[in-house]
């Protein structure tokens, strides 16, 4: 019997294709066009070839922003992933406290990014902030508007407060999906808690942990609003990450060509890292 081939279902994909085209493809094409031209007002453009790419790739300012970005991403991943996993392991699996814990964990994720920045700005203000007062009382000379180290500490603390919950919720979802039979078998074998974690929970969490790392990597690599509201990229350029530098170049200096070249390099880095994480995730899943 011949199978009927019906391709009309493809029409249902059309709205998504149009949405992605207007939302992503056309802006990306425009950025590529801008990256090879010198832009002036009134739609005046002059061909400049790959000059902006050479300039950006050899610019110390870009290297410094990229380095700060990588350091920030590495720091928050090193803190948020183990911390999120530890909190998820400590959360109750049954009983009335489950809902309480889940709501508490979800709260930071519901707060708009600019509000998070403003909250931490007030918390860390050198004169009246709760965080600064506490640190002063403990004997630390804390002033995030003056000291780069203090600014980094505050930015990382803010990100950990804001986003660890995401890792917690993902890990928790992974943990509750492990069938009880695994724990029963471990109990019969007399497995210690560490062995249960190492040989049951961690392998079963591999998939969600990869998703958590991928999401946190991409989000942290694109961080903008919270840091701009909190530190404005300062003191000096101490917390000027890639996205902040990009906006300064594109909108502050109105250098659309270099900004377009920079954003394409930035996009390719994120694309490469996302592909690497995705490939690893799929490999883990197929094992």
């Amino acid at each position: 019997m011949n199978k009927t081939v019906n391709q009309r279902a493809w029409w249902f994909v059309l709205p998504v294709v149009l949405l992605v085209a207007f939302n992503a493809v056309i802006p990306l094409m425009t950025v590529v066009n801008y990256s090879v031209q010198e832009s002036f007002g009134s739609n005046m453009f002059f061909w400049s070839g790959v000059r902006w790419f050479e300039e950006v790739l050899r610019s110390e300012r870009f290297h410094a922003s990229l380095l700060r970005q990588l350091a920030f991403t590495a720091a928050i991943l090193a803190i948020e992933v183990p911390l999120g996993l530890a909190i998820a392991l400590a959360m109750p699996r049954r009983g009335p406290w489950v809902s309480v814990c889940l709501v508490l964990m979800a709260l930071p994720l519901l707060i708009p990014w600019n509000v998070v920045g403003a909250m931490w700005n007030i918390m860390a203000l050198p004169t009246i902030g709760l965080l600064s007062e506490t640190l002063h009382a403990l004997g630390f000379d804390y002033n995030y508007t003056r000291e780069p180290g203090a600014a980094w500490f505050t930015v990382i603390l803010m990100d950990v407060w804001h986003w660890t919950s995401l890792v917690v919720l993902l890990c928790y979802a992974g943990l509750v999906s492990i069938p009880d039979a695994y724990y029963q078998a471990a109990k019969i074998d007399g497995a210690r808690p560490w062995a249960v974690f190492r040989y049951i929970q961690l392998p079963k969490l591999r998939y969600v942990l990869t998703i958590a790392i991928l999401l946190r990597f991409m989000d942290s690599f694109m961080i903008y609003t919270e840091v701009v509201v909190l530190t404005g990229g300062g003191p000096g350029t101490a917390t000027t990450f890639l996205s902040i530098d990009l906006v300064k170049t594109a909108l502050g200096q109105f250098d659309l060509g270099p900004a377009a070249a920079m954003s394409l390099v930035y996009f390719l880095i994120i694309l490469l890292m996302s592909w690497l994480f995705y490939t690893l995730m799929m490999r883990n899943q197929s094992r």
Binding site: N43, M44, F45
Partner: peptide, 21 residues
């Protein structure tokens, strides 16, 4: 390829058009 068309803001050039093609 520039001018007053509705796509002028996209700043198309022949090399970039060839790249996407």
């Amino acid at each position: 390829m520039q001018g007053t068309s509705v796509f002028a803001w996209m700043a198309w050039t022949w090399p970039t058009a060839a790249f996407f093609a």
